[in-house]
């Protein structure tokens, strides 16, 4: 955030938090982890008009990055607001700014909750319960189906996600397609399983995407990929992506069954792991586009568009087809 942007943001925060009084940013920093949004942590002191007392806020400003990773803030904000209103633990959103006038991209302002997202093995069971709780949310009562698509047909959850991410991949394509990605798309369409139950799906669950404090889970974070679909998609993501370094797959499967009663079938799990790898492949492609067309020269774009993308592709290949013989 440059000085002009910070000045405009300060003015914006004064309207938002101090009824048009004044605000002062007293501490600032950009969080390096998390790539899809620029995340600025701010400490702000505000004075309302005619009031001497200073109010202090710790907030996060989450700024879009020209479509990086294939999501925008609109649904993310609406999901957070709906879940917060339904009593699910997630941060409160103070405001969503859709214009490009202040920070050059749409952004939203949310409260900073206490806790950290660093590794904490003692919180894993608690987190599994939280994810199961998310899958039990009555999404119709919470109004989520008023803006999230409800999958159609028995294979809709898998097929709609496949097409969503493939569309993002094609948007991000620079030059010719990757034959392995095209084959992966065909494989996912051909093997799409039926879904027994449609739930809220977080889309990026696991360690690093929940906050914990004093050994207890405080909230889930990062709602940009949340949609309605098959909860097995989330379990597969937890097991194969964010949770892969925590414990082996078979231990995860046992733990999830013990805590939630969910029995994960190996073949279906394989499919959902592949879909999650495919999602990674496709969203990473957007970084290549933004880097190559000069929209975003940050070096993490190059890393995501090459190494991270290829890592996901290799995992897809190994899981769907296995390494080549010989």
């Amino acid at each position: 955030m440059n000085r002009d942007e910070e000045a405009r943001l300060t003015e914006y925060l004064a309207k938002l938090l101090a009824d048009g009084g004044s605000c002062r940013i007293v501490a600032r920093g950009r969080i390096a982890m998390g790539q899809s949004r620029a995340m600025h942590r701010l400490e702000v002191e505000c004075r309302r008009p005619g009031v001497e007392e200073v109010e202090r806020y710790r907030i996060l400003v989450r700024v879009e990055q020209w479509g990086l990773l294939g999501s925008d803030s609109r649904d993310e904000v609406r999901v957070m607001q709906a879940l917060h209103a339904a009593g699910f633990p997630c941060a409160k959103v103070y405001a969503y700014e859709t214009s490009h006038d202040i920070l050059g991209q749409p952004f939203f302002v949310m409260e900073e909750l206490p806790g950290t997202s660093g590794p904490a093995p003692e919180t894993i069971d608690d987190y599994v319960r939280l994810l199961e709780r998310l899958h039990q949310v009555d999404w119709q009562a919470a109004g989520l189906d008023s803006f999230l698509a409800v999958p159609e047909g028995p294979r809709g959850s898998a097929l709609e996600q496949t097409e969503r991410w493939y569309g993002i991949y094609r948007w991000g394509l620079v030059g010719e397609p990757s034959p392995l990605v095209e084959a992966a798309h065909a494989w996912l369409r051909k093997n799409a399983p039926e879904t027994a139950r449609v739930t809220v799906v977080h889309g990026d669950p696991g360690p690093g995407n929940y906050l914990h404090h004093e050994g207890r889970v405080v909230a889930a974070v990062d709602w940009e990929f949340t949609h309605l679909g098959d909860p097995e998609e989330d379990w597969a993501y937890l097991i194969a992506m964010r949770g892969a370094a925590v414990m082996p797959e078979e231990d995860w499967v046992r733990k999830i069954r013990a805590i939630t009663g969910t029995v994960l079938d190996a073949e279906r799990l394989r499919y959902w792991k592949c879909l999650n790898f495919f999602k990674g492949i496709c969203i990473d492609q957007t970084a290549m586009k933004l880097y190559m067309d000069g929209t975003n020269p940050a070096p993490n774009m190059l890393a995501i568009g090459t190494g991270v993308h290829l890592s996901a592709l290799k995992r897809f290949c190994d899981t769907a087809w296995g390494p080549p013989e010989g």
Partner: peptide, 10 residues
């Protein structure tokens, strides 16, 4: 990249 991703958001 790996070093940063093992870091913390908060």
């Amino acid at each position: 990249f790996g070093v940063a991703m093992r870091g913390r958001k908060d």
